[in-house]
């Protein structure tokens, strides 16, 4: 478990994604460089480097290509949000960064149920993972303030593809009782829990 935690958040998330997508055999992830970029060594080919690259590969492996978007536009929007996730959400280091992300997302989600198009995609999954620590840290008032994000977050966490291992943050009704209905399973939840606690 300690080894997994050290391998970086990206690798941990990929393992979660893999499991949620229903892929049976666990891949082994390595990290590379100072930024701990995840690396996947495939059995019969080159190693895949980078969070988004590996995530997209897993989706294809699971034969759930619809998660990458169905039309050309949708695919582009999925990519856009994956990029946003890696550059903005992961790079967010201050309260102010968080505020901007939540504000932008809240406006964006005012008239949308999903981040890309009209269905659930990889963009929703990975943004959900990425926002999990941020959302878990919000006060009830803040959750009400970013109502559209809260509603979206609550909706996404009910998809099996979003991973049942995550803490289920209960946003229904009054967005209170945070952590009340959390489900902790296996090593992942412990890791996630640490991540949530120590991410700020």
């Amino acid at each position: 478990m300690a080894a997994a935690a050290q391998s970086g958040l990206g690798a941990e998330e990929l393992a979660l994604l893999e499991k949620s997508l229903g892929l049976q055999k666990g891949n082994k992830y390595g990290v590379q460089g100072e930024r701990k970029t995840p690396v996947l060594q495939t059995n019969n080919g080159p190693s895949l480097i980078g969070f988004i690259t590996i995530a997209a590969h897993l989706v294809k492996q699971a034969k759930k290509e619809q998660l990458l978007g169905s039309t050309a536009e949708e695919k582009a929007v999925v990519q856009q949000w994956l990029e946003y996730r890696v550059t903005r959400v992961d790079g967010c280091s201050s309260k102010e960064d968080t505020r901007i992300i939540l504000k932008d997302l809240n406006t964006y989600l005012e008239d949308k149920v999903y981040l890309a198009g009209n269905s659930f995609t990889l963009a929703d999954i990975l943004m959900y993972y990425g926002l999990h620590p941020i959302m878990a840290d919000l006060t009830v008032q803040e959750k009400e303030k970013y109502l559209n994000v809260s509603r979206w977050f609550n909706h996404i966490q009910h998809y099996p593809e979003a991973g049942h291992m995550c803490l289920i943050v209960n946003f229904s009704l009054k967005f209170c009782d945070l952590f009340k209905s959390c489900r902790m399973d296996l090593d992942f939840s412990a890791n996630m829990y640490n991540r949530i606690r120590y991410s700020f």
């Binding site: 509603r151 609550n154 909706h155 229904s172």
Partner: peptide, 11 residues
């Protein structure tokens, strides 16, 4: 629908 994505439940 402010807090709900769909009318009942999450589907």
């Amino acid at each position: 629908l402010k807090t709900q994505t769909f009318l009942v439940g999450e589907r």
